[in-house]
Amino acid sequence: MIHAMLHPLEALGLQAAGPMEQFQILPIIPLTLGDIDISFTNSALWMTIGVAAIIVFFAMATGRRALIPGRLQSMAEILHEFVANLVRDTIGHDGKKFFPYVFTLFIYIFVANYFGLIPSIPGSAHELHTFTTTSHIIVTFSLAMVTITIVLVYGFAKNGLKFLKLFAPAGLPFVLYFLIVPIEIISFLSRPISLGVRLFANMLAGHIILKLFAGFVISLLGAGGFAMILSIAPFLGSVAIFLLEFLVAGLQAYVFAILTCIYLSDAAHAAEH
């Protein structure tokens, strides 16, 4: 049904692809580990590009540890302080050991989101199109599961069985516990799902809408005549959506990091509830 409006403009080298094509996982180097397919795909390529960019940035920023920081070092220090404040404010004193994890999580998602917004080179092979790794639920859900695993392991290691107090806040009438405890357990179990799906849904929705608007532009241009003038409307729309996505890309990385901090804080302070 979406393909009905697929209107190739070979003359322009443009092509209105369906909104879902950008999420295709395409193997570049086929690899297997035993029976498991671990091919180096376009998703893996963009993960690698993102991490390589982060490493290059930080290597350049920390190469010369100057007392008066240069531009790159200032950026790295602002990022460092931003996440450090986030961790300190939400988790408190216990937060220090989670700082590298939260920082890595934040910068990884941040870069993945923003690299996904870079337009692809027109005419390049589909395997090399920009790919938003965080638009795949398995990626975001895995990251969420890492967070929840850390919460569970650290929570039980620090508080022992008192960690279960998280599900039964103190100072309630006895009867209410029959209601509160299941609610708390369900809310806890839904955390990894909502954490993962939130990032996934934001990236998915943003990129689909961007692609739909871009597709409208191509379709209207292809229709010719008066419709070509109308194509300015979806074009402006796609610019507006891009700006919104630019905000959302940073915001979702921040939200993922802050929710991770809140959950870790729950684990750190469970016994005090």
Partner: peptide
């Protein structure tokens, strides 16, 4: 495609975490 994505996510994330 999930195993490949999880594998490469784990590899890249672990490298980044270790370096960080």
């Amino acid at each position: 495609t999930w195993p490949s994505q999880i594998f490469w996510l784990a590899v890249t994330f672990a490298i980044l975490y270790w370096l960080m």
